[in-house]
């Protein structure tokens, strides 16, 4: 059953308040104990996100270790997002959407060709954004692990099926994470227009951060 948990943190007190345009990205540092909220301003917008241990970028988010250790394929409030060394990087502390994917990966120009055909080779994709913003902090192609897709709905079935379904998010829905150590967050506000992950129409999201500078 989906449980929706709201946050007590108030936007006027945020030290980070930034709108990420459709198809754009963000890279930044969250100090240990700080909270980052991602607001799905218009609903059904996938936000592809990677976390790294700021002190050791090789100790990066691991989707498969995270879902194995929590025994469940989806992320929601209480999910501890673990690194490849099983260190908690962030914990989801609030979630008004209810369920987030971490098995669907990020779109890339090359995988778009596989999925949709050569006419999509030059469409913008999350991996382009990851590489562009990652370069600012020394994160390159080999450092891109498998990401979280906040607000994205990728249902699994007991017979081993996987589909991309219409989003379960809504305008104003948000997810909030608390950093369990100093982390680097790398975000691509997904530009995909070939499937329903963004409601066929990518839209902006808002980032809010609370920590002592």
């Amino acid at each position: 059953m989906t449980v929706l948990i709201e946050s007590p943190l108030r936007p006027p007190a945020a030290v980070l308040d930034r709108t990420v345009a459709a198809g754009d990205g963000y890279v930044g540092r969250i100090p240990a104990g700080g909270s980052l909220r991602i607001v799905d301003l218009h609903g059904n917008q996938a936000v592809d996100t990677l976390f790294y241990d700021a002190g050791n970028l090789a100790n990066r988010y691991s989707a498969f270790d995270t879902i194995r250790e929590q025994g469940s394929a989806y992320l929601t409030t209480g999910s501890r997002l673990l690194s490849v060394d099983l260190d908690p990087l962030v914990t989801i502390t609030a979630d008004t959407c209810g369920r987030h994917d971490t098995l669907g990966g990020a779109c890339a120009q090359e995988s778009n060709v596989v999925r949709y055909g050569m006419h999509t080779r030059h469409q913008h994709a999350c991996r382009e954004t990851f590489l562009r913003y990652g370069a600012e902090v020394g994160i390159g192609a080999r450092d891109l692990g498998h990401n979280v897709n906040f607000f994205m709905n990728v249902p699994l079935t007991p017979d081993g099926g996987l589909t991309f379904a219409n989003g379960v998010s809504a305008p104003g829905a948000y997810v909030e994470v608390r950093a369990e150590r100093d982390v680097v967050v790398l975000i691509s506000n997904c530009p995909q227009v070939n499937n329903p992950c963004n409601g066929w129409d990518p839209t902006p999201v808002r980032l809010l951060g609370w920590w002592s500078a």
């Binding site: 890339a108 995988s111 498998h146 990728v154 699994l156």
Partner: peptide, 29 residues
């Protein structure tokens, strides 16, 4: 750089498991 990408392999073939006759795909498609 190029290596097996499990999420891309799964979403391209709408499967959450590996079985015949699936193709295992790389980061580079």
């Amino acid at each position: 750089v190029d290596r097996l990408n499990v999420p891309d392999t799964l979403k391209a073939q709408l499967s959450a498991r590996i079985r015949p006759p699936m193709v295992l795909m790389s980061d580079r498609g």
